[in-house]
Amino acid sequence: MKAIVLEQFGSIDNLQFKELPVPQPQAGELLIKVVFAAVNPYDRKVVEVFGKEAGVQLPVVLGSELSGIVEATGEGVTGFKPGDAVCGNLGTFGGCYAEYAVVKQTDVVVKPAAVSFETAAAAPVAALTASKAILDEGGLKAGEKIVIHGASGGIGAMAVQLAKAAGAHVTATASGKNEARIKALGADVFIDYTTQDFTTLIKDADLVLDTVGGKTQEDSFIILKKGGRLISLVQPPSKEKAAQYEVQAKMIFGGPNAGRLEKVMQQLAEGRLKVTVEKVYVLSDAKEALLAMKNGHRTGKLLLNP
């Protein structure tokens, strides 16, 4: 099979398009014929910045998010059979940038017929990370005020929808060109960070979701009410500032959650959640896709088609 393999950390230029044996499923695993693999910012960051710290063993096939068709099952697998359409978030580098991938049966769910393979590959990481951040870790409740920074990105856009569905008042920050799209997803207030200072427009927020970091994160302490919460996906918040402003602040990571993913797939099937696919690349152009992810503000998900 064809696959994108990393044999040395440090640069996406180190990725190689190689021929590898088709992996075989062990007990509790499925062999998936990949239809689409999603490209995520985390993929590039592991390659270029913190691969060793993330515990990645080389060589490795990239990719943690996919949709595909069950080709074979290992011993003890229940609930799946060859021919089933599935999707999932496999955690760090589950081997999705390939024609075939072996996955744990606990990391994937059956794809509803009403959900396309493109959507099914584009949704898991964004939906699971956003829901974990604002619902599980952030404890968002109906009637609360949430501020979502970087709302035009995949996770941010999903967070807008999930927060609105939870009954929250949603303020979203992004560049002005995204205003119509983000408001259509449910944002009550849109702030163009390129022309407006959110610290002068927001006060007494219950929860901030930070997908940006840096000064945006630092300034977010100002807009939180006492006892408010800040959840970051990009860098650990300052403990000193959290104490100064009497708020809770932490960084979290996403990960597989099949139970919640089943609910997300149902919401997508019913049209209650939406994801945008910006572009589909062929597998051999994975470097180009990762470079696009690195160099520009994306308006939707980038996918690879083996």
Rank of each mutant, 00 (worst) to 15 (best):
C87D: 05
G55R: 11
E218G: 00
P124M: 07
V60M: 11
E75P: 00
L140G: 02
I146F: 09
T129F: 10
I222V: 14
P82I: 04
K52N: 10
P82R: 09
I223K: 05
K294F: 00
A165Q: 15
G63Q: 11
D43E: 14
P23I: 01
A172F: 06
A174T: 05
R298I: 00
G95N: 10
I146R: 05
G95M: 09
V110R: 14
V234H: 08
N40T: 12
E118Y: 01
G296F: 01
G153I: 06
K177T: 10
D204A: 11
A133W: 07
A127R: 04
A205G: 12
V56W: 05
K81Q: 15
G228H: 07
S238L: 11
G28V: 06
I252G: 02
T173C: 05
D285S: 12
G214H: 12
P124V: 04
S220V: 09
P82Q: 08
G95C: 08
Q8W: 00
K104W: 00
V264I: 15
A269R: 08
A98K: 07
A54H: 11
T171V: 14
K104H: 11
V35L: 10
L209V: 03
A151S: 14
E288D: 14
V56S: 04
L31N: 04
E137V: 15
L30H: 08
K52H: 11
L233D: 01
K203H: 13
V103W: 07
A3H: 09
V86T: 03
V56A: 06
G254Y: 11
D136I: 13
S220M: 10
A180R: 11
A165N: 12
A205M: 11
G10K: 06
G88E: 07
Q266F: 00
V160C: 05
E144R: 07
D197P: 01
A85R: 13
A151D: 11
T173P: 08
G254E: 09
Q217I: 03
D192L: 02
S220G: 10
G91S: 07
V282P: 12
Q161T: 04
S284Q: 15
E71K: 12
Q196E: 15
Q267P: 00
D136Q: 14
A101K: 09
D13A: 13
R44C: 02
L162V: 04
G139L: 09
Q267S: 13
G139C: 03
F36M: 08
A286Q: 08
